[in-house]
Amino acid sequence: MRRILAIFQKVWVVYVLLAVFVSVTFLSNKMAFQNARLQTLSRLALGPEYWQALADKHGHLDDKMLDECVFYHRKVMEYVPFKAADAWNLTAFCYYKADKRALAGDAYEKAIKANPRFFWAYYNLGIIAFKDKKYVRAADMFRRGLAVDPRDTGEAIMSSKVYLDVLEAFQKKPEHVMEGLRAGYSSAKEMMDASMFCQLNPNATICTAPLPFDIAIF
């Protein structure tokens, strides 16, 4: 009996009790725990130097900045799963700005899977495909993007804190969102036509010259 008691007079018993306490606490305070996670997420948010690099047409993200961008959006996906599409879209944008087009493409695919009614994911993937001379795919992406109701995209942006933070960092107003979409749809039509043309005439000037359009967030 004494031996059995001696086994329980060890620190491991405290560990077990602590584990039970912590589990009960977190299970009964899920909302508070989620709030704590969101607080930490806001502290991880990317600083102005990132958005300046992203907003600039010739801006570039170095490896360190890319790592922070990817890490932050990964955490957004983990803590706010219903914002996964937004996080993938912005992750893709970071990859693109770090000259990692293949990874950007993969991320846009995941964004489309998470939210098939977001114009910019298709548009950006179409641009990437066109630059990679994958004209069939590019045409398909632009066609699918044009099929998305622009109001769905506008609503998705305006209801997402992730995007609103970016909007603020880019010093854009909400009306820029619809303006951007109008321009985007117009470009997408042109790019779809160009993609179909380039399928047949891959050596034409239009297919080899630098693109007048680039990927966009909004």
């Binding site: 060890k10 620190v11 491991w12």
Partner: peptide
Amino acid sequence: LGAVCGLNRRIIFYL
């Protein structure tokens, strides 16, 4: 490793 240490007054106080 501390899991196998004995539970004493000091540890209870710290906890």
